[in-house]
Each structure stands twice: as structure tokens, then as C-alpha cells.
Amino acid sequence: MQRDENGWRVSVDVLEVPRIPDTTSLLATYEVELDPDGKLLQYRRVRRYRRGSADD
């Protein structure tokens, strides 16, 4: 979480495609912008990856 002049910027990891086994599931990181009252302004996906994969 990070506070900026327009409210808050939050990074959220989401399970997008559950698979069996779990290690093949696809996850994504979304950047979410909220106003000072916590209302959603916008969001965008910034990364998509397999569960258990290491960052570069």
C-alpha cells in the first residue's frame, strides 16, 4: 500500500486460473487506485505468473 495525492495505491495478488496441481495455477498482480474514502478509481493488471515461480 502507498498513499499518494489522490488517495491510495494498492497491489493485490489474485488467483485468476485455478488448476490441478496447484503449482500450475495462474496468478496475477493488480495495481488498484482508491480515492481517500476507499472507493475504486481504477485498476490494471501489472503481472501474470504461475504459482511458485520466482521473480526475475
Rank of each mutant, 00 (worst) to 15 (best):
Y43M: 09
T23E: 15
E16G: 06
P36R: 12
T29G: 04
V12N: 08
M1R: 03
R9A: 13
R47W: 11
V14L: 14
R50Y: 08
M1S: 11
R19W: 02
D37G: 12
D22T: 10
Y30L: 03
S11F: 13
E16T: 06
R48H: 04
R9S: 11
D55I: 08
Q2T: 13
N6Q: 14
Y43E: 15
L27P: 00
L40P: 02
D13R: 14
V12A: 06
T24V: 04
E5I: 14
E33R: 12
Y49L: 02
S25T: 05
G52H: 03
D35Q: 06
K39I: 01
T29E: 12
D37T: 10
N6R: 13
E5S: 15
D4V: 10
V32F: 03
V12I: 05
T29N: 15
E33V: 09
Y30P: 04
R9I: 12
L26R: 10
V10S: 04
R44T: 07
L27C: 05
Q42G: 14
E31L: 06
K39T: 03
D13M: 07
L26W: 15
W8S: 05
P21I: 04
R48E: 06
D56W: 06
D37K: 13
R50D: 01
T24K: 06
E31F: 01
E33G: 07
Y49W: 15
T23I: 14
S25V: 04
G38D: 09
A28C: 02
S25G: 05
R51D: 02
S11P: 01
D55R: 15
R48P: 01
D13N: 14
S53Q: 10
E33I: 04
D4W: 11
Q2P: 01
K39F: 08
S25Y: 02
T23D: 15
Y30R: 01
S53K: 07
G7K: 01
R47M: 08
V14T: 10
P36I: 03
D4H: 12
V14M: 12
D37E: 15
D4M: 02
L41M: 09
P21H: 07
L40M: 00
D35V: 05
V12T: 03
R44S: 09
V10K: 00
L15V: 05
L15M: 11
V10F: 02
L26G: 01
L15E: 06
D37S: 15
E16C: 07
R9Y: 03
D13L: 09
V12K: 10
Y43C: 02
L34E: 04
T24D: 14
E5Y: 06
